[in-house]
Write a protein that binds this DNA or RNA. Structure first.
Lengths: 240, 240
DNA sequence: CAACCCGATTGGTCTATGCCAATCTAGGAC
DNA sequence: GTCCTAGATTGGCATAGACCAATCGGGTTG
């Protein structure tokens, strides 16, 4: 129709679009043809097939396992971030949450933690490192830093099961507000190891600052979520 | 030290790590060596160099322009999402915001819009499509759908300059709360065209549902932000 | 029967190379 | 001087093939 020269779409993008159609009606977990088979069928190189598949993996639509194959990924979860706990959010969706504590100790605050918690660098703070699981699948890596002296914190945390419950019922700390920042990143070796994602897959990096009823920062947490399995929701109320 | 066999890091990842160090002390905009030069220097193929650079581009640390070169990317912006407007947020950072209206019309609600705005499919709704700019650079593509009859909307919007101001001062609509969802995606041809990003670069897709004082949904907006230029912040107040 | 091993299959990394497309620069035409 | 063109340079796309690593299935071995 138009006389204008239209830039032809790259082959890998055409293939990607075709794959999206193909998997639209397939159940999660279904294997798609192998890379070599697709390369044959489309008369293209495996490199080109891999570029198309890689983007779909990055978008969370496909997954792949070396030696096994490439399959349709399960749909994204929705994570409602209110002043509730991760566990509650997940349970509200009918799923089974869990947390594995990797480390719990008292450490001197580094410069970043000190700034966020408004304490002098070197001040002892509690450090809690955990893996968040849903249906036994590791979905997030979280490192929390807590300000102040919290005697018997370990026992209280285990008893309460939830960080926020422990703070509230163990120490009477009431929370005023939460500030979350959300940004994208790509997985490196640490995330590959901890979350079982593949190199270069997208992540959501969340930094959370929690203030108590007096407006004093009490918690500074850095979390890395699998970007292909999560969607964040924030509900924000009007001021008046 | 350990007798355990350590999986050797892929070459492209080593190169990526080296590049992160290299650019740490370089000013934004500085050109890094060309792909061919890096391939020579590291005794590797250009394909491997491109894999390393591609991930850094996806993370927003590098940018590249065909025929020109690969350069250090500017730092991310921070976008505070409260019940304020995009414009106010950007101005608060000392930057110059702008919006370019691509389309403003009344259209029948499709299934998704109808569901979100709780109206029957086909109901006339206002559709506003805009490009958000900061310092003349397009950073987001936004399609808003507004429920209800809004006589003279176009004129009021132009007069107010801001969507929220227009709703409030033009029609007395007070807003109760906002619900944002944030997820990741990769750029396709439309984003390449509208935002000037490259194919496959990461995006933040935000869906926003705004309710009025009675809790009735009044706005359903779909936004696509450049993932390499934005960081979201949500402040959430405790309920009581 | 269970445990083991081996080979086929599949994705992961990498090479070497070619050509296309966008950009920039140096020279020449006017 | 301005404009234009022709190369050189740079990133973008794609090929064909090699070898590695993880997985899985079937057959052998105890």
């Amino acid at each position: 129709m138009s006389a204008e020269a239209v830039a032809p779409l790259p082959k890998y993008y055409v293939l990607k679009t075709d794959l999206v159609e193909l998997i639209a009606n397939l159940a999660p977990g279904t294997l798609i043809p192998t890379e070599r088979a697709l390369a044959d069928r489309y008369g293209t190189s495996r490199t080109t097939v891999r570029q198309a598949i890689s983007e779909l993996v990055a978008e969370g639509r496909l997954g792949r396992i070396q030696g096994h194959g490439t399959f349709v990924a399960p749909p994204k979860l929705t994570h409602v971030r209110q002043l509730t706990s991760f566990s509650e959010d997940v349970r509200a969706q009918g799923l089974r949450p869990a947390a594995k504590t990797l480390a719990l100790s008292t450490v001197p605050a580094d410069n970043e933690v000190a700034e966020k918690l408004t304490v002098p660098p070197g001040t002892p703070v509690h450090r809690l490192e955990r893996i968040r699981l849903v249906e036994d699948e590791p979905l997030a890596h979280e490192v929390a830093h807590l300000r102040g002296r919290l005697p018997g914190f370990k026992a209280k945390l285990e008893k309460a099961g939830s960080l926020y419950t422990a703070l509230k019922e163990g120490y009477g700390i009431r929370l005023l507000d939460v500030e979350d920042t959300v940004e994208t990143a790509l997985a490196g070796p640490e995330e590959v190891r901890l979350l079982g994602v593949e190199m270069g897959s997208p992540l959501l990096v969340v930094h959370r600052l929690v203030r108590d009823a007096e407006g004093i920062p009490v918690e500074w947490t850095s979390s890395v979520f699998r970007g292909d399995r999560f969607r964040f929701v924030a509900r924000i109320k009007a001021d008046g």
